[in-house]
């Protein structure tokens, strides 16, 4: 017992060896930092410690620190993760951590990526609400147990963190591909009784770069910190498009 305690204190006293991606535009390189290890420490804590104690010019993004806002996602040892909810101990490689900006997005500076392409694709996938009623109409009654509502509910807890988008190899090889988050959003709206955009959604997601560019590799589902299943949402869209193709000869 005493030995265990001594070991754990000794482990804590070894500083973490942290490599952080530094860049301002094109190019860039990893910079090494030594960060004090603590018993309970997230990857975001590590980045914040570097910015507050070593280099105030380090750029990164965060807001809520409790896994709700989706702004602190970064590549941690090569995997996209929400850094505020990622324990250092869970991802340590020996005593090292490598922290880089999210994959598949342009880098603005250091760990901050330009999220515009990600959100532009949400709009391109018709991941926007299409109202069916005016303020004068009665509010639509939704049965929470209905099958379409259950399908929509399965995907609506997305926090727009772009982790699935960074994990996706199809996005990496096809820059026009809308990506798992946008298609998941389109699928939830397609199943939403209050949304009147089923037709435009199917047209949008069956165009070039749409859901057919997905190869069902499942990295999105594997990486999603909220344990959503964008791959299943995309499969749902493919099914609906195939049905629509036979009925209408188009999506």
């Amino acid at each position: 017992m005493t030995n265990d305690l001594t070991e754990s204190v000794a482990e804590q006293s070894d500083p973490l060896e942290v490599s952080v991606w530094r860049s301002a535009g094109d190019g860039g390189a990893f910079q090494a930092f030594k960060v004090p290890a603590q018993d309970s420490q997230t990857v975001l804590d590590v980045v914040a410690w570097i910015q507050q104690n070593e280099d105030p010019t380090l750029s990164y993004r965060f807001a809520c620190r409790v896994g709700m806002c989706g702004s602190c996602a970064m590549m941690v040892n090569g995997q996209p993760r929400w850094t505020c909810r990622t324990h250092v101990r869970k991802v340590l490689d020996g005593n090292r951590i490598e922290i880089a900006p999210l994959r598949n997005l342009p880098v603005i500076k250091d760990l901050a990526t330009d999220m515009d392409p990600f959100f532009d694709k949400w709009v391109a996938a018709e991941g926007v609400f299409h109202p069916s009623k005016s303020r004068d109409d009665a509010i639509e009654q939704i049965n929470p147990a209905s099958a379409p509502r259950a399908r929509a509910d399965a995907g609506i807890e997305c926090i727009n963190c772009s982790i699935c988008y960074a994990a996706c190899d199809s996005v990496a090889s096809d820059p026009e591909y809308l990506g798992p988050a946008a298609l998941n959003r389109a699928w939830t709206l397609f199943n939403d009784a209050k949304d009147d955009g089923a037709g435009v959604i199917l047209d949008a997601v069956s165009a070039k770069g749409g859901c057919h560019a997905c190869h069902s590799m499942g990295s999105c589902t594997h990486a999603c910190p909220n344990e959503l299943n964008p791959m299943a949402s995309i499969a749902g869209l493919k099914r609906e498009i195939a049905k629509s193709f036979f009925k209408r000869g188009k999506a």
Binding site: S206, A207, K208, G210, H212, I241, K250, A251
Partner: peptide, 12 residues
């Protein structure tokens, strides 16, 4: 539309 036709042709 072309992509959709190709997708369907491959599945069929």
């Amino acid at each position: 539309m072309t992509e959709l036709r190709l997708y369907m042709a491959q599945r069929l």
